[in-house]
Simulated assay, not measured.
Amino acid sequence: MGASTPHGLAKESPRLAKRVSEIATCSRREADEWIENGWVSVDGEVITRLGARVNPKARIEIKDAADKHPSESVTILFNKPSHPVVAGSAGERDDAVALIRPDNLWAEDGTIFRFQARHLRGLALAGKLDADEGGLLVFTQEGSVARRLTGRDARLEKEYHVHIEGELSSAGLERLRHGLSLDKVKLLRAQVSWLNEQKLRFVLHESRKRQIQGMCEQVGLRVTEIKRVRIGSVSLGKLAVGQWRYLRADERF
C-alpha cells in the first residue's frame, strides 16, 4: 500500500499525476495508471492513491517499468437507444460511467481489448445526440480523435436515417439538399434521399442542434425518429441497441 500524501500541504499543492505528466511528458491518464501500478515514489515512498497532492519541491521518481509499459488508449462506439438511457434529477446522462459496462459489451466485439476500469478514465463523449435521437455515440481517450469529431473545423460526414410523417414534393426534397437556413444561418449542402416511403437518409457535414428536425419542419414534415448510423467511415454495422464495442484497428475517424 502506498504512503499517504504528506500532512500539512497547502490546498494549492499540485496533484501527483500532474507533476508526473510534466516530468515524464505523458498524459494525465498515463500518469494515473503509473501511480496505480506503484511505479511512482515521492521522497522515496511509493504513492498509489489517485488524487494525492505533493509538495512542489518533492523528489519524484518514476520506475523504468513505466516507459516499457504500453498504454492503451481506447475509442468506444455505443448504439444509443432513441430515448434517455439514464434519467434522474440531472436528466439524461450520455457519460461513459452510465453507458459503458462489462455486461453490455457486444458479444461479437473482435478486438484485442479486454474491458478494464482504466478504459473509462478520461473517456470523453465526442459528438452528442439529443435525448430523442438514437444511434452512434463515440467515446474516446484520444484527444486527436475528439478534435476530429468535435473541433471547430470538424467536417466528417454524419449519416442519419430519419422516419418522417407528411408529404414531401420533389421541390421540397431539393430544398432539404440545399437552400435552407437555421437561426438565419445558411446550412451547408446536404445529401438527402429516400430509403423507403417513410424514411429519409441524411448525410450532413455540420452538427447544428436539432438540425434535421428544423430542416424537415421547413418543408412540412414531422420527424418521428432519428438514428445516426455513421460518422466518417465508421458505421454502427450490426452493433445492437444499448450495446458497445471498441473501435477496431482497421477503423479510423
Rank of each mutant, 00 (worst) to 15 (best):
His205Thr: 11
Phe202Tyr: 06
Glu142Ile: 14
Lys158Thr: 10
Val162Ala: 07
Glu159Ser: 09
Ala154Gly: 05
Arg152Met: 04
Val203Asn: 05
Glu167Met: 06
Val185Arg: 09
His163Tyr: 14
Leu137Gln: 06
Gly151Ser: 12
Ser144Ile: 10
Ile164Thr: 10
Glu165Ile: 08
Gly151Phe: 02
Asn196Ile: 01
Ser144Gly: 03
Leu173Arg: 12
Ala146Trp: 01
Ala146Val: 03
Leu188Pro: 04
Leu188Trp: 07
Gly143Pro: 14
Arg177Leu: 10
Leu176Glu: 00
Arg175Pro: 00
His161Asn: 11
Ser170Cys: 03
Gly166Lys: 03
Lys184Arg: 15
Ala146Asn: 05
Ala171Cys: 03
Ile164Asn: 03
Lys158Gln: 15
Leu182Arg: 10
Ser169Met: 04
Arg152Cys: 00
Glu165Met: 09
Ala171Val: 13
Leu204Asn: 10
Glu167Trp: 02
Leu156Pro: 01
Arg155Glu: 09
Glu197Pro: 08
Asp153Leu: 10
Leu137Lys: 06
Ala154Thr: 06
Arg175Met: 13
Arg155Thr: 11
Lys184Thr: 09
Leu137Ser: 09
Glu159Val: 13
Gly172Ala: 07
Trp194Gly: 05
Leu173Met: 14
Leu176Asn: 04
Arg201Thr: 05
Ile164Trp: 08
Ser193His: 09
Lys186Ile: 01
His178Arg: 15
His161Lys: 12
Leu156Lys: 14
Ser170Asn: 14
Leu173Ser: 08
His205Asp: 05
Asp183Ser: 14
Val138Trp: 02
Leu200His: 07
Gln141Thr: 02
Gly172Ser: 09
Val185Ile: 11
Ala146Pro: 02
Thr150Ala: 03
Phe139Ser: 07
Leu188Ser: 15
Glu142His: 14
Lys184Leu: 12
Leu182Lys: 04
